[in-house]
Design a protein around this nucleic acid. Sequence first.
RNA 1: GGAGGGGUGGCAGAGUGGUUGAUCGCGUCGGUUUCGAAAACCGAAAUGUCCGCAAGGGCAUCGGGGGUUCGAAUCCCCCCCCCUCCGCCA
Length: 428
Amino acid sequence: MKQRLATRNVDGAVVDDVLKLDAQWRAAKTAADEQQGALNKANKAFGPWMGARKKNPVAPAPAELTTLLGAAPADPEAAKAALGKLGEKQAEAARAADAIEQQIDALLLYVPNLPLAATPVGKSEADNVVRKEWGSKPAFAFTPKPHWELVAGQGFDMEIGGRISGSGFPFFRGKLARLERALISFFLDLHTREHGYTECWVPFLVREETLRNSGQLPKFFDEMYRTDDRDDLFLIPTAEVPLTSAHAGEILDDAATPIRYCAFTPCFRREAGAAGKDTRGILRVHQFSKVELMVVTTPENSEAEHETLTRCAETVLERLEIPYRRLELCTADIGFGAARCYDLEVWAAGVGKWLEASSCSIFTDYQARRAKIRVRDKDKKVRLAHTLNGSGLACPRTMIALLENGQQADGRVKLPAALATYYGGEWL
RNA sequence: GGAGGGGUGGCAGAGUGGUUGAUCGCGUCGGUUUCGAAAACCGAAAUGUCCGCAAGGGCAUCGGGGGUUCGAAUCCCCCCCCCUCCGCCA
């Protein structure tokens, strides 16, 4: 376990700390439980004695009580005092156990998931592995422009967004606004009609607890927009957050799985620490649209589901005729809660780069443990569920690829046929 | 935002301080019966956690968290959710 954490550049010493605390906790917990047990027995004997006293004022204390208190109490008042003292001792023992448990929980919240064995070990993003490439990069008889120079007159009004909210908040007019809407509809229709996902409409503001369930908090607090303390809600960074918590606390029958949900939401990210990097146009923004795929399933089926889910995302790109590659992230680069992750990168001819348009992760039981999502098999055995999710897809990066790859010498943009009915034509 | 009602085991629904982890019903599962089934009858059945090789046992949990008490599903406080009415509003 330490070795596998080490592949994520996490110091394995935390494992020793947790194990040590756990041993302490078990001892403390057992001691506290035993004291509680004795106290419960004594209290149970006390009630009937009170009843007997009413009929016979000198009724002797029951043997049980005498044994547990070490001596026969003279009267109920004395017994109460003795029991009170026992209770104090018990409470102290319980507090000691709780304190240790809290230390353990605090440590564990900052421990990432363990990578699956299949995840390539690596030291940095340079060690990610290209698993496949699909399509071919378009050839141009001219130098292709980056997306922010395209769609003259109805393009990327970043200044307007900036005026309203600050940089990184896109404002689209006309064609791009319509394209955005077309993409969202296309994504949702494909996943619901052909891939068996149930469309969901979800809250965009959530509680702290909800972020904790899917693993964004406490670790990524600085990435989150948050309302003031009148409500103290967080703006979702992805639909993964509300979708993962949809079944929090539930025990699902195996037969009810897999649960496949998809949802369109805007995504809000502060991108703290990323300032100045790839910020031209809509490469990296604080608010963007995304259709998310999310699956709850059994531990037995989760790895197969991961492939299926990734294929669902890839299908979108294939229908849109966008060249892409599937990158398998190495241990150093997978997300905090992920055990294995594929990034789908689209080719953007204008900026001449591969851009991440989707990230498809399997979380094993990491999120399920936090959100308390469990599954029950035929023999009524309860286990933690497995969760997965992936973008299907994020709009800005998809839009960039469509514009930059589809641009013509005359400045027009040819859209893929699959989008024509959604956009209302093949030319942007 | 204001006023009121409510949150109990898969569902429904009792239970207002002392063998209540919790009545009854429905549903579920096992059994008896049957050629098979239905009905009837009998029985089983929550989750977490700790100790134990196991059998088994302890502890916790009646929306969540505190408190009162020797003792809380039952009393008090805070929070969350649902329902009804009023106000405000896209």
